[in-house]
Design a protein around this nucleic acid. Structure first.
Length: 590
RNA sequence: GGUCCGGUAGUUCAAUUUGGUUAGAACGCCGCCCUGUCACGGCGGAGGUUGCGAGUUCGAGUCUCGUCCGGAUCGCCA
């Protein structure tokens, strides 16, 4: 149905009889001549229809936007003065000899040109139209190329792509599962995988040595700009490997992508311990493009009268930090009030600040809190931060989690709003994660997952679980967690110990993870791996800030599909067959 | 579950601050004209339950409450 793609036709085709198929992008009717811009995935070309071919001319007259047509005609050079330098195919045009309308189209629900932004919900409702826009299709094509390149790097390292089940069983820890009722097992449910974690470990026990998969994962949790209920992981696992082996492989993959899809050549990637990351950035996914760091000043303000600082400084669950922002003293009272509101919404009680106007001079510092602090404390803070004139210092004091959240968010906000971003790409590894963290109920829970190899012995783990580190690592790029992994437990005794520390009884461990313990007992190689979020990788390499842009049919923030209107109700017969009785009825829902 | 932003013609927006005549514009759409345009042009025309529901008021797109939808974010996401 075609000899050429629309966007590929150029001067070298002049004089050829060709055939193209595509969509009517624009129609310009001049009465005696009709121009049709015909578009396919590869671009747009101008077709000229004139009354020399009466049938064709009449059909062209009836064409409207988004009609799907076929043109047979002659490529010719455009006449003098009619060359369009803005168009890739602007030097040529097609003189239409035959025109076939394959498919008529109603007026599009929104314009498909680049001259008007269209709201996302309308685009999602009509995604099949949205996909015709080069901006959208281009990102999906890029995704395809990225995926292909990832495969080639992994294949080049002797990794094998192996599929794992989508229908599997629910796991007690982790995210909320998507459940699928079993018809043949009344009252029982499959769960969709949150990740292929256990299966890839079992592949290692099975001796498959090096595995990868472009794996769809499902988590029934609330959505964010970078979180969809179903998403894609580049899932990797290998046997007889150290942390260095995995990190080297991951760096090879990432540097390949960055060099091929951006002009960035990756250098030494810094490694930051989890502890340092929290201390300096307040989070475990710092955006290193922003040159701002927190400095702990708890020791300096411990003995101050100022309770806002000294209170948290003397509480082990709290911290007091200072954030020096260079050359920011131009911030107005209104600006600072806005930042105070911003951190307030994240739980901070306030946002103390000092403006550095003229260091070392009388009244050289401006701040409402100066009168509460001893001069030597102020001097220690300013010299410790190496402040200069025109800097501003922000302070965070209170519960450590609140300070970390509010101040790390403030760093990211200041970085964007004050244009402090120093470079385009800033990767890093976060290493030495703790094995466990405490829930609000003070229960121990895995920071990574329960199969992570501890960096300590089983005895040390039990005696001091709060301090135990894990053989786990996260890859962070520009403030996004792109990937994370670990070495895995390969000793059934250690694995049982971890379940026990997590409060999973031996009976429950046997019921839920018996197959894993049995596998670990049957000759398990030391192994480890990593998983990258493919959607986020493509998002960053596409220069966008939400993963809906790189997914063909994404879901909205309320986890529904505006195109298909999923999820939807099912018939009573379907429910009965699945032995399911609803506890709500339609009236309740509405 | 919480906080914040938004919802007006097919689309993108204005009118909301300070409630007041018939809710405007651009693009798109329809008709007529036009043989060199390319975001073609000219003339004419159609198109609105201001998301939905209450309330306040002589009067609501505008104020209040509720609700639905979309987005950002906290909680949540081993």
């Amino acid at each position: 149905m075609r000899s050429h793609h629309c966007g590929d036709i150029n001067s070298s085709d002049i004089g050829k009889d060709i055939e193209i198929s595509g969509w009517v992008h624009k129609r310009r009717d001049h009465g005696g001549v009709i121009f049709l811009d015909v578009r396919d995935l590869h671009g747009i070309v101008q077709v000229v229809c004139n009354p020399d071919h009466p049938n064709t001319f009449d059909l062209a007259d009836s064409c409207r936007s988004e009609f799907v047509i076929n043109i047979k005609g002659l490529v010719r050079a455009r006449i003098e003065g009619a060359i369009n330098s803005k168009m890739a195919t602007g030097e040529v045009e097609i003189e239409a000899k035959d025109l076939v309308i394959f498919s008529k189209a109603v007026t599009p629900k929104f314009p498909l040109d680049d001259y008007q932004e269209v709201n996302e919900d309308i685009r999602l409702k009509n995604r099949f139209l949205d996909l015709r826009r080069p901006e959208v299709s281009g990102r999906l094509l890029k995704r395809s190329k990225i995926t292909s390149r990832i495969r080639s790097v992994l294949e080049g390292n002797n990794f094998h792509e192996i599929e794992t089940p989508i229908l599997t069983r629910a796991t007690p820890e982790g995210a909320r599962d998507y459940l699928v009722p079993s018809r043949v097992h009344p009252g029982e449910f499959f769960a969709l995988p949150q990740s292929p974690q256990l299966f890839k470990q079992l592949l290692m026990v099975g001796g498959l040595d090096k595995y990868y998969q472009i794996a769809r994962c499902f988590r029934d949790e609330d959505l964010r700009a970078d979180r969809q209920p179903e998403f894609t992981q580049v899932d990797i696992e290998a046997s007889f490997v150290t942390t260095e082996d995995i990190i080297n492989l991951a760096e090879q993959m990432i540097s390949t992508l960055l060099s091929e899809f951006t002009n960035y050549t990756i250098g030494e990637i810094p490694r930051i311990t989890y502890k340092e990351a929290i201390a300096h950035y307040g989070c475990d996914k710092p955006d290193l493009r922003i040159p701002l760091q927190l400095k702990d000043i708890s020791e300096l303000v411990k003995n101050e009268e100022f309770k806002v600082f000294s209170g948290p400084a003397n509480d082990p669950a709290s911290r007091v930090v200072a954030l020096r922002v260079p050359k920011a003293s131009g911030l107005t009272r209104k600006n600072i009030d806005e930042y105070t509101d911003f951190v307030g919404k994240l739980g901070a009680k306030g946002l103390a600040y000092i403006k550095v106007v003229a260091l070392g001079e009388e009244n050289g510092l401006q701040s409402p809190i100066l009168k509460f602090l001893q001069q030597e404390t102020i001097d220690a803070i300013t010299s410790g931060l190496q402040v200069e004139n025109d800097d501003i210092i922000f302070f965070g004091a209170g519960n450590a989690n609140t300070v970390n959240l509010s101040m790390s968010s403030l760093i990211k906000k200041l970085g964007e709003e004050l244009d402090l971003i120093t470079c385009e790409w800033a990767p890093c590894w976060i290493v030495d994660f703790p094995m466990f963290e405490r829930t609000k109920e003070n229960q121990l829970t895995s920071l990574h997952h329960p199969f992570t190899l501890p960096a300590v012995s089983a005895e040390e783990l039990r005696s001091n679980p709060d301090e135990a580190l894990a053989c786990a690592y996260d890859f962070v790029l520009n403030g996004y967690e792109l990937g994370g992994g670990s070495l895995r437990v390969f000793d059934p005794i250690m694995q049982s110990e971890i379940f026990s520390i997590l409060g999973i009884s031996p009976d429950e461990a046997e019921e839920k993870f018996g197959f894993l313990l049995s596998a670990l007992s049957s000759g398990c190689p030391p192994h480890g791996g990593i998983a990258f979020g493919l959607d986020r990788i493509v998002m960053l390499l596409s220069g966008t800030t939400n993963i809906r842009d790189v997914i063909a049919f994404p879901k909205t923030q309320s986890a529904s599909c505006l195109l298909t209107d999923a999820p939807g109700e099912v018939t009573a017969e379907q429910l009965e067959e699945l032995h399911i009785k609803l506890t709500i009825d339609k009236e309740d829902k509405e």
